[in-house]
Computed example of a mutant assay.
Amino acid sequence: MDTKILIIGACGQIGTELTAKLRATYGVTNVIATDIRKLNNEVVNNGIFEVVNALDYNQIEHLIEQYHITDVYLMAALLSATAEKNPAFAWDLNMNSLFHVLNLAKAGKIKKIFWPSSIAVFGPTTPRHQTPQYTIMEPSTVYGISKQTGERWCEYYYKQYGVDVRSIRYPGLISWSTEAGGGTTDYAVDIYHKAITDGKFTSFLSENTELPMMYMDDAIKATIQIMQAPLDQIKIRSSYNLAAMSFTPKQIGAAITKHYPEFKLSYAPDFRQKIADSWPASIDDSSARADWGWTNDFDMTTMTEAMFKNLKEQVYPH
């Protein structure tokens, strides 16, 4: 049976690039992109697009039946910094959209689910360095609480009902092609833009705040890889740790000055500092590497080169 994919939240930071890669991999007609509103962008203009509210079970069920969907990628969520401003809605969106998709799989209407978790599931009591796959998880943000709860439900639906749901805990994601989306690690996206446009940047995290990061190409690769992996290789049904690199604002600033020697970096920590301080500095992802063969292609140096190359060619071409 052909793979037919439904992406919920296709216009978000990850969804945008994931949609393009899935269309290239499976064919444009086999990938149905959806989001809460219709924007004038590549996701909408380069393939099949439907307006869908992730909280509307009937809408999702209708599309699954209409397009004979086999796999659902549920990318709709309110991210860490944004969620803190609207906790009740963040909980509703992040949890009930997951329940809808899990229940549709339980009912036999879809075969496979990808649901993203995050390093936000960890908290201030978690070991900060080389955070293990299994460890203390006491998240202190609404986003983290919803992701940790989601992980428990994913594992429950797998054990109780045999639902094939797969998940990875994304670190901070860095992309040249989509705007930052209200996350605590977004300074590491914005800093590249400002290096080109302004020659200076003010970080909302302090200079030595180390966080796990990943270039978007690697995150997309991991997402598709875990979904393509044979069933018996997926041994963890909560969510897999995933890592590529860790760095501080000071370190990324130093990497940027190799390309822009005049670049100036200053610091003005805000409410996001407290969120960052509750998260790991580095991640042990040996389970993902052992179980389904995960490897990253980018480190801080190669990512910085790729970011500037793409930004100068695609975003600031003059």
Rank of each mutant, 00 (worst) to 15 (best):
T19A: 13
T304K: 04
G123V: 06
K38L: 14
I220H: 00
A306C: 02
E179H: 13
I252D: 14
K4D: 07
I136E: 09
A54Q: 07
E17W: 13
L78K: 02
I113R: 08
E61I: 07
L39Y: 15
N241I: 08
F247A: 08
H193N: 09
R128G: 02
T141V: 10
R237C: 06
T209L: 11
G199W: 02
R237V: 00
V163N: 12
A120L: 04
A243S: 00
K85Q: 10
T257Q: 07
N94M: 01
F308Q: 03
P269Q: 11
I226A: 00
V44E: 05
K112M: 00
W294C: 02
I5G: 03
I8Q: 10
T184D: 11
H193W: 13
T302F: 05
G27W: 14
F49P: 05
L104H: 11
I5V: 13
Y158W: 14
R289M: 03
W115S: 04
A254D: 12
V165F: 14
I283P: 01
M245A: 10
K274F: 11
Y57D: 13
I145A: 00
T135H: 02
A76P: 07
I224Q: 04
G15Y: 08
K264C: 07
A107Y: 11
I110A: 04
H318Y: 04
P212M: 05
G181A: 08
Q13A: 02
T135F: 05
T135P: 10
P249H: 07
Y316V: 06
S80Q: 03
I220V: 13
Y67M: 05
A255R: 02
K312D: 01
D190W: 03
A33T: 13
F114K: 03
L18S: 05
D56P: 09
S146L: 01
